[in-house]
Nucleic acid binder design. Structure first.
Lengths: 233, 233
DNA sequence: TGTACATCAGTGAACGCGCGTTCACTGATGTAC
DNA sequence: TGTACATCAGTGAACGCGCGTTCACTGATGTAC
């Protein structure tokens, strides 16, 4: 507290906390969330299982930390990709595709973490509020591309079918929540693209498109471009 | 074998087998696939755990039976809905939407079974070949609507962005597999709609759209119509 | 129709396993005087 | 700078739990003569 440098105890604390998280991520990658065990993680670190309780209140707290980190990793990857495309002066559609492909790249590299975020809910685990904000990062990054394009006048609304009379108020509420003036048909298309993006990834990662799609990267690229086109980018 | 009526033993066998499956489905609905336990199922049926092994070789065999039944339940529901819409003389787009909404209705009524089929893979479980054919039923039912419409000349291809040069051969291979002459842009759009349909459902069921979409039924309806429009129905 | 044997559903005990969490403890690190 | 006390990371044993699977067995059902 009084020292400008953190104490040895303090340093050790953060280091070991990360070591636990890293090892837990390793286990997650092999066993999945349901098979993640405090005891196994402790064992692998040469710790006694009860020692982990100095760092995480219980198994759920460890899971929550993993979820928050995963959301942030995904958020960072997407932000970086979009920022890069923006810096390179790429048009909105390509920025959107770059963001989408960053999501895919992260998901492929972190399969079980992706499953933790977007797969079946872990039975008996209720995500606490801490996970909400990091969880919105990807969606916000992607919708920001659409907002920028719209602000620059670069969106042509021409979707065949838009939202119906029941869905429209829902979208207006959402627009208010986002503090944006995006027209509802555009927001509708963006929402659809969002669900499609993750639907596609989930199918690819969980093996539903096995035997149907061969070149997943190419298919994803074409799909992402199509989504962007539907949004009007 | 010689008797026209099945023996008491035989009847008991099929009945108890179904009782085990029913109880397993109940447990699945509460605990999820990872928490499904042979012992708990046996206990609830007043059986000793080892007795279950007279009916299923092991836990994985039980899971497989649940998966096959679930795929068939979903397939039946979809077939019935589409057949009903066809019998009522509804146009192709409405037939597609009817099929999609049947998938949603089934999924809502069988959340954990849906998760078993389309959620995170169960760690350590590899679905055997028996599950492949039932697994394709929904997709085939939906694509059949598109084929019928195409055969009747009812498809207007006008998608903004189609498949690229890498994806096109993939789609031609798939068309061959299906034994259809659907143009690749239509097949591409159908594939996208398929992934979007399940992406949307997964988001709704797993709570990703909580706080974003209020009236899920209406949103789904609008989304399904939009997908159909993108296919050209 | 009656008897002898074969089949097989269900039993109960056991094997060997891993899990999350609690708790009194020890000894090293940090802090206040 | 040195000492006394407070903090707290890590220990090791224990509690109580549930799991999948195997195996020798019993007794009822089915079958062949």
């Amino acid at each position: 507290m009084s020292s400008p440098l953190r104490s040895a105890r303090d340093r050790a604390r953060t280091e070991i906390r990360s070591a636990i998280l890293d090892k837990a991520r390793e286990h997650l990658a092999v066993e999945g969330a349901a098979g993640l065990s405090l005891r196994a993680v402790a064992r692998d670190l040469g710790l006694v299982s009860s020692a982990v309780y100095r760092y995480f209140a219980n198994r759920d707290a460890l899971l929550t930390a993993l979820i928050v980190d995963a959301y942030n990793g995904l958020g960072d990857a997407t932000d970086t990709a979009i920022a890069g495309a923006t810096a390179a002066g790429r048009p909105a559609r390509e920025r959107w595709v770059a963001g989408a492909e960053a999501v895919r790249a992260w998901a492929l590299a972190h399969l079980q973490e992706y499953a933790l975020l977007y797969g079946s809910p872990v039975p008996g685990y209720a995500a606490p509020d801490d996970t909400v904000v990091p969880g919105t990062r990807v969606s916000l990054a992607l919708v920001q591309v659409v907002r920028d394009a719209h602000d620059a006048g670069g969106i042509t609304v021409g979707t065949a079918v838009g939202p119906g009379p029941v869905t429209t108020p829902d979208l207006e509420r959402l627009a208010g929540l986002l503090g944006t003036t995006l027209p509802t048909p555009v927001l509708f298309a963006a929402l659809l693209a969002w669900t499609q993006l993750f639907g596609l990834l989930t199918f690819e990662l969980f093996g539903q498109t096995r035997g149907i799609v061969e070149d997943h990267a190419a298919f994803f690229h074409d799909a992402a471009s199509t989504m962007a086109a539907h949004i009007g980018l």
